[in-house]
């Protein structure tokens, strides 16, 4: 249950960062935090009380392991998260070069 609370807290903190912070890098950090929260949530949904990692080896029978599916999904999600963060950061670098600011409300070219 702890894990649920932790992931809820992570997601809430991440969204709060997105809502309140104006600094582009902090917003990307917020995205990353949400990402971590969601990953944690997925893993903990897949957990089954008293079971172990899903690797079948002598001493571990199939009836004894947790759900591997969320873990596989999280593996995907981590990679996607990395991609998103890298791309977003490079765009921010560009934005900074062009506008000399990281404040999102000062980047006005796409607004009216």
């Amino acid at each position: 249950m702890m894990f649920y609370f932790a992931s809820a807290a992570l997601i809430a903190i991440g969204i709060y960062m997105l809502m309140v912070k104006k600094n582009l890098i902090k917003m990307i950090l917020g995205l990353s935090v949400i990402d971590s929260g969601v990953n944690l949530l997925l893993i903990s949904i897949g957990y089954i009380n008293g079971k172990t990692a899903p690797i079948i080896q002598p001493g571990v029978s199939p009836s004894n392991v947790v759900d591997p599916l969320p873990q596989a999904l999280v593996l995907t999600n981590i990679v996607i998260g990395v991609s998103v963060t890298a791309l977003a950061l490079s765009v921010v670098i560009r934005v900074y070069k062009h506008y000399k600011t990281l404040n999102s409300s000062e980047v006005r070219d796409l607004k009216w």
Binding site: I15, M19, W112
Partner: peptide, 12 residues
């Protein structure tokens, strides 16, 4: 509006 924060607000 073009402001990310507003979009997050909309969603939430």
């Amino acid at each position: 509006t073009g402001d990310v924060q507003h979009y997050v607000y909309y969603v939430m």
